[in-house]
Design a protein around this nucleic acid. Structure first.
Lengths: 192, 192
DNA sequence: CTCGATTGTCTAGCGGTGCTAGGATCGAGA
DNA sequence: TCTCGATCCTAGCACCGCTAGACAATCGAG
C-alpha cells in the first residue's frame, strides 16, 4: 500500500510542477513560449508524460486558470476585508481586481483570453471559478441598488472591470488615467 | 502606363480578395483555421504570394481588424442617427456595438483579441480605429456628466461594452439577460 | 526581331508546433 | 529469480508560419 501511496504523491507533485512551470514560462515569456517540448524539458521529463496528466495543452492552461481564479478570490476578499464602508469596499475590490490582472497577465489570459476548455456559469464549472464570482458578489451585492438583481449587477460590474483590464493591457487604452477611470466606474455603477 | 495601372488594379483586387477570404474562413471556422496554406489555396495562389502583400499572418489579421473598425463606426452612427434624445442614442449605441460583436465574432477578435500588430491610441493608429472611437465619442460625450472628461468617459463606457461582449461570447456570462444588463449599464453610467 | 534584365510566381524545404504509436526499461509480487 | 504490468522515452506524424532559389513570363534596348 505504502508504495502505491508514494507513487500517487509523486504523481500529484509532478502535476503541480507541470502547472507551476507552465505558469512560470507564460509569465516570463508569454503563452506562445509555453510549448509542450519546452515545458517537458523544464520539468525534465519527456513530452508524453504531460499527456498522462492532461489531455492536452488546453487542459494545462485550464489548470493555471483554476489556480488563478482561487488567487483572485483571495486577493479580492483581502482587499475588501480591510475597507470600511461600501464605497471603500467596492473601490478596493476594483483596484485589487485590476491589480491582479496587471501583475499576473499570463494567468489572467489563461482565465479569460485563452481557451482553457473550462465551463463558466454552468453546472460543471470548477469550484474556484464559482468562488471567485462569489467573492465579487459579496461586496458588490450590497451596492446593487433597489430592485436590481445582485447577480446581474455583479456580472455587469465584473464585465466593466474585465474590459478595463484587457483593453489597458493590450494597449488599447492609455495606461495612465487608470485611477480616474476606476473612480468614475465606482461612482457611477455603485449605488451608495 | 496603362499596363502598369492594370497590374496595380489587379494587385489591389487580389489584396482585397486575401483579406475577404481570411475573414470568411475565420467567420466560418474560427481564426485557427485561417492558415497561410488554406488561405493560399482558397485564393488559388501559392503561399508566397501572401507575403508579397503582407509581412505575415499578423498583418492579414490587422487588415481585417481595420476593416471591422470602419464597419463598427458605420453601425454605431447608423443606430444613433435614428434615435431621439440622449437616452435612446446611448442605448441604441450599446445595442449596435454588442450586436456587431455578436454577429461578427471573428472580426471582433481580430480587433481586440488577437494580435494584429496594430497601434491603438497613438500617432500611427489607423484612421478607421480612431474614427470608430470618434463615433462612440459623438454620442457618449453628451452624457458624460458635469466635470467629467468626455474622452475618459467614452473609454470607460467602451471598456464596459467590450467586457460584456467578450465575456458573453466566451460563455463567461449567461447569454440571456443581455437586455437588462445593457439597460442597467446605460442607466447607471450615462448622466441624462 | 532578338536578347538580357526585370518581374512575378511556384516548388520545395526549414525549423517549429501539438500530439501519439510502439518499444524499452524497471520494479513489485509470485 | 522470474514474470508481468506500469511507466517512460524515442521516433515520427501531420500541420504550422515563413523563405530561398528555380523558373517562366514580360519588358525595354539594340
Amino acid at each position: 500500500m505504502s508504495v502505491q501511496e508514494r507513487k500517487e504523491r509523486e504523481r500529484a507533485e509532478r502535476e503541480r510542477l507541470i502547472v507551476a512551470t507552465a505558469r512560470e514560462i507564460a509569465e516570463q515569456q508569454g503563452w506562445d513560449a509555453v510549448t509542450t517540448r519546452r515545458l517537458a524539458e523544464r520539468i525534465e521529463y519527456s513530452q508524453p508524460v504531460l499527456y498522462s496528466h492532461f489531455r492536452g495543452k488546453r487542459e494545462i492552461i485550464g489548470a493555471v486558470a483554476v489556480q488563478g481564479a482561487a488567487e483572485i478570490a483571495v486577493a479580492v476578499r483581502a482587499a475588501t476585508a480591510g475597507a470600511t464602508g461600501p464605497r471603500e469596499r467596492v473601490s478596493a475590490l476594483a483596484r485589487a481586481y485590476l491589480d491582479f490582472a496587471a501583475r499576473n497577465p499570463a494567468v489572467y489570459d489563461a482565465l479569460f483570453q485563452l481557451d482553457g476548455g473550462l465551463a463558466f456559469a454552468q453546472e460543471d464549472t470548477p469550484e474556484s471559478l464559482k468562488d471567485a464570482f462569489a467573492a465579487l458578489l459579496e461586496s458588490l451585492g450590497e451596492v446593487a441598488g433597489e430592485g436590481v438583481d445582485t447577480g446581474l449587477f455583479t456580472e455587469l460590474f465584473w464585465a466593466s472591470l474585465h474590459g478595463l483590464a484587457t483593453l489597458t493591457r493590450a494597449g488599447r487604452l492609455p495606461p495612465q488615467d487608470i485611477e480616474p477611470r476606476v473612480e468614475l466606474l465606482v461612482d457611477r455603477l455603485a449605488v451608495l
